[in-house]
Design a protein around this nucleic acid. Structure first.
Lengths: 139, 139
DNA sequence: TTTCCTGCAAACGATTTGCAGGAAA
DNA sequence: TTTCCTGCAAATCGTTTGCAGGAAA
């Protein structure tokens, strides 16, 4: 058994946080979500953002794309799909190509040995802008 | 141009650190490498481990598998291959299935839009031991 | 010599957490 | 009421960094 989950009460801040994450394609970190909301919710605290994101992850309403430059980045679209991370600017982009047969097949193979509940495919490289102008060292 | 790389001098500690990472399948973190070496190299410091791992990553002698429980984990086998991460115990396992056509095909597609220099496929779930005895909450 | 490497310890920065007051059930 | 939620600020903890001495070239 998984144990007794604590009852969940309604919270408008929680709703707002989830809404922000779900309504952007920027794959934000906690700080970004906080800054995005603090003008509308002046008494919001960063700790609350962290606490709620953790809840969303447990409920699989939000997934982690990974840690980029030391900061964990999230995605409100939880269906498995590949991501591209730009090593130059840290941008994260949803890849147009569907997470195909291939990876699903792989998942099937792996499931013979392990219980899988989540998978991730991430490509790293430079985005269009950073290819032209890599990381701008000297202004 | 990428700029002038600084000359690299020989260092027995650096060699030892790389050797440890390359000769284990545990996908260790910096701390593990440090503890593994400190009996043989009593004056080794954790900072040196971090500094050298960063060098190895730049030279692609070591890659990052990702952050598990807040700690970055590394792999001395740099050819792209999928990993399994156990959410129960944090163990990382190389998956037997070759990183197949599928993902390579996906990479090819992505390369039309981006410069890719690295890719990652990770499955999350519970390993055999943790399936039977999940995370042992109460001893 | 000059340049790189390292121990040490302080600094950093993202995330977590204890506490006390407030809101939801 | 009771339980959950949150602001606040302190605490954590993995990782980075400045400095001075030592090793490699």
């Amino acid at each position: 058994m998984t144990g007794m989950e604590r009852a969940r009460k309604h919270s408008s801040k929680r709703d707002a946080i989830l809404r922000v994450i779900q309504s952007t394609v920027s794959h934000p970190g906690a700080q970004w979500v906080y800054e995005r909301l603090k003008s509308a919710i002046p008494d919001l605290s960063l700790g609350t953002v962290y606490r709620n994101i953790k809840l969303f992850q447990e409920e699989r309403q939000v997934i982690s794309v990974g840690v980029v430059n030391g900061e964990e980045r999230f995605d409100g679209q939880t269906a498995p799909h590949p991501h591209f991370v730009c090593s130059g600017c840290g941008k994260i982009i949803d890849l147009p190509c569907p997470e195909d047969e291939a990876v699903r097949g792989m998942a099937a193979a792996v499931q013979q040995d392990f219980v899988i509940d989540y998978r991730k495919t991430v490509f790293y490289g430079l985005c269009g802008e950073c290819t032209e102008e890599p990381t701008r060292l000297v202004p």
